[in-house]
Nucleic acid binder design. Sequence first.
DNA 1: GCCAAACGATACAGATCGGTATACTTCTTC
DNA 2: GAAGAAGTATACCGATCTGTATCGTTTGGC
Lengths: 204, 204
Amino acid sequence: MRRSEIRDHLLETALRLFNQHGYHATGIDLIIAEAGVAKTTLYRHFETKEDLILAALERRDEEDRNAMRAFVEQHASDPAKRLLTTFDFLEASVRDKQFRGCMFVSAAGEHKDTVNPVFRAAVMHKRLTIAYFEELAHAARFAEPKRIANEINLLHEGAMAVAQMTRIAEPVQQAKRMAGHLLAAEERSPSARGGDAGQRTQAS
Amino acid sequence: MRRSEIRDHLLETALRLFNQHGYHATGIDLIIAEAGVAKTTLYRHFETKEDLILAALERRDEEDRNAMRAFVEQHASDPAKRLLTTFDFLEASVRDKQFRGCMFVSAAGEHKDTVNPVFRAAVMHKRLTIAYFEELAHAARFAEPKRIANEINLLHEGAMAVAQMTRIAEPVQQAKRMAGHLLAAEERSPSARGGDAGQRTQAS
DNA sequence: GCCAAACGATACAGATCGGTATACTTCTTC
DNA sequence: GAAGAAGTATACCGATCTGTATCGTTTGGC
């Protein structure tokens, strides 16, 4: 393993274990054992465990948001449909055997102080995710893109929380249907009524 | 303090600390120090820390659901409106200075194994909460009370998750508005169109 | 009022925690 | 190929973890 890869390998191992067991329950000794690395090496790359957690969350944040962008852009072209396609991406994440709930919600749940850097990193991820939703809502010419983005985000959070408990993907599909109904009733700028299914009757 | 009160006092103290710092981060030594009790006493009432967590969650489960029932029955009489009133109860919980997210979601987040008793206790709480929503949805004569209950629950979970990060109550109000729009479009048994605002135009 | 149970206080056990120190080896780079 | 950075392995540090043992004191029920 090349030296520059060790840091990446450590981050991947740490992310996997944090996801499996949580942050407090995952000790440094377990991380280095699973990564096959000496403790000295870990502490050469990360000053403290908290630094490792922060680096892992930053990595996961970028990965997640990039993956969602790529998925959505590939599976839908109409901006309004893209908002709904975010749920398809979420469904794929939830269907993963390794899914155990949102790592950022869990991070905030284990570091509840609002000034804690881990808590703040979790909040930042959610802010950036909402910003993407708003970008899509704006492109879809919804009258209130900020509110739409917050509603989509709330449905995402709800679906993930329910799926964390039930370990099934159905809540995500339900959230998508709910989002579809809500968006269909929203006002949009006239030039947005392009080729997509704008009006929807009460018959589903 | 009478002997029978010690157990209650321990549970209340543990619940407060679990809510403040999380489950792993709250040590037995802190709990007994805050409760002003000897370690021997705690272990006479609870065999292990996990037993303490389970007893605390059971207590919280009953308290929460009883409080929600009482609040809803007091603030609304129409069953359909009662479904929306559950969000008012949630808003009051979130506005509490001590709110740091749903304790059951956090419990499941720190004990992710589905066979873990703590995880199962969290799941049980959610199941019972959904059962109450279904009871209300049935009384309101919605065509699909199970689906309605799951949708209301998903909005509750989403609102709590967002509020856990933002520490504001606005997401709960937003979830209530979303629930109102969704319920207004739902089919209901004819005899349910009593004195409530059954049909709602697209103008909010 | 007696007795047993429960309490408080403290010390301790054994494990694990995050993090450091040391000494030796391997790799990269000039 | 020499030098220095980065790796491994291991021992160790002090703190903290859950849980137990000991012992004297308090208390409630008969």
